[in-house]
Write a protein that binds this DNA or RNA. Structure first.
Lengths: 160, 160
DNA sequence: GTACGATAAATCGCACCCGATATATCTTAT
DNA sequence: ATAAGATATATCGGGTGCGATTTATCGTAC
């Protein structure tokens, strides 16, 4: 049990770093950082989006998003226009010029990386991976409910 | 495949955040941050350690470690003494006073969290989780070799 | 209409994270 | 012994991430 818990803990850490590395290479090709690329991707997907929704979708605090958007705006990558419906709010969009340069989504390299990884396994093995992951996720969710850790409830359950 | 890759990617992200949260609560009880607690734990385990080894063990850059150690030193938690064997180096240790206050290791709360999670599953389910994790790790390692991503080779393979 | 509560985003201060640089020191080659 | 290469750590500058605070604005209750 002890060794198994250690293994799982370290694996999660390792896998996470692997995913971050996958997206980092892509970001650097565009002279951006990973968080910047994630923000841009969200703006691309939504065409127009507010700081608030970026905050929710990206699971960052509003202050972090504000800073990142500000720097991307200064770089001419993102546009900030006042929201006519609410003067407290701003609309974030991608400038037309940049739109043609960045046709990719932030998750694409990560998706490709995970897909490549899975393609190295047999369908049966893939099933085991997925099953194990579901069991672990279920157990974690259960523990969180027991502990009253409701702060991560914003996780979008896949396959909803 | 597409949905499965998405699920696995998001699960890894979620699980990672869960682990971080687990240690965060513990850190806050001591008025510390997670990175600080990790550094302190390494110093506790090794009694005396250099910045260089902290850097390697914690998988941070030397500049990050230097900053953290500096702040912990300013708080009186860590001690920095010149290394008599090498004037470029410093020995990091825990002050005697703090030694009595912090008898815990940084990984304990995380270990406990993962153990608690696993205890919610049957032994058979635990086996599936571990098996899936091993398959995934094997596939990721394989892909990294194909891509020449040797930079993460510092991962200590468990059960060696 | 007015007051109050809630909200959106900018900003601040702190800590962390990184790569690059600088300085002093050690190791190796000649 | 000397010079060159390698190394340990502090520091710098830029970016990220957070919680707290501020200011303006919106929504609701009366």
């Amino acid at each position: 049990m002890e060794d198994r818990a250690d293994y799982i803990r370290e694996s999660i850490d390792f896998l996470h770093r692997f995913l971050v590395k996958s997206i980092q290479k892509h970001a650097e090709e565009h002279g951006l950082t990973v968080p910047q690329l994630r923000v841009i991707a969200q703006v691309l997907v939504n065409k127009q989006i507010t700081i608030k929704h970026l905050t929710q979708n990206l699971r960052m605090t509003q202050s972090t998003v504000s800073d990142i958007v500000e720097r991307l705006s200064a770089k001419g990558i993102l546009l900030k226009t006042p929201n006519p419906k609410d003067k407290r709010s701003v609309i974030i969009s991608v400038s037309e010029e940049v739109l043609n340069l960045i046709k990719d989504h932030s998750n694409e390299p990560v998706k490709r990386a995970v897909r490549d990884v899975l393609s190295l396994l047999t369908p049966e093995e893939q099933g085991t991976v997925e099953q194990g992951m579901r069991l672990l996720m279920k157990a974690v969710t259960e523990k969180m409910e027991k502990d009253g850790m409701g702060q991560m409830e914003s996780f979008d359950e896949p396959f909803h």
